[in-house]
Measured scan of single mutants.
Amino acid sequence: KRLCLVCGDIASGYHYGVASCEACKAFFKRTIQGNIEYSCPATNECEITKRRRKSCQACRFMKCLKVGMLKEGVRLD
Rank of each mutant, 00 (worst) to 15 (best):
C59N: 02
D77V: 09
M69P: 01
K29P: 01
T49W: 08
C46D: 01
E45L: 06
R2K: 10
G17H: 05
K50C: 04
G8N: 01
V18A: 07
N44T: 07
V74A: 14
I48M: 08
A11V: 06
A11M: 10
K63S: 03
G17R: 04
G17E: 11
E45M: 08
F27S: 02
C7R: 03
R2M: 10
C24Q: 02
T31V: 07
I48V: 12
V67N: 03
T31M: 07
D77L: 08
D9Q: 09
L3H: 14
A26R: 13
G73W: 11
Q33I: 02
A11Y: 09
K1T: 08
A26K: 07
H15K: 05
G8T: 10
H15F: 08
K54L: 12
C46A: 00
F28V: 06
K54P: 15
C24R: 02
E22I: 04
M69F: 13
Y14P: 06
C56I: 02
Q57K: 09
D77G: 08
G17K: 04
K63M: 09
K63E: 03
R60C: 12
F61I: 10
A26Q: 13
I32V: 13
G34Y: 13
D9N: 05
E45I: 06
V67T: 07
Y38M: 03
C40P: 02
I36Y: 07
E47F: 05
C64S: 05
E45P: 03
K1N: 13
C59V: 03
I32K: 06
T31W: 00
K29A: 15
R75S: 12
D9V: 04
R51K: 12
G13D: 11
N35I: 03
K71I: 11
I36A: 11
C46G: 02
G8P: 02
R2C: 09
K66L: 04
L70E: 14
P41S: 09
G68T: 01
A19E: 13
D77P: 14
S12C: 14
R2H: 13
N44S: 09
L5C: 05
S20W: 11
Q57Y: 06
C40H: 11
L70C: 10
V6H: 00
K66P: 00
L5W: 06
C46W: 02
C56F: 00
F27P: 03
Y14V: 14
Q57F: 07
Q57G: 14
D9W: 06
I10R: 11
E22W: 09
H15S: 08
S20M: 06
F61V: 06
S55E: 15
E22Y: 08
A19Q: 09
M62I: 08
S20K: 07
K71V: 11
F61L: 12
T31R: 02
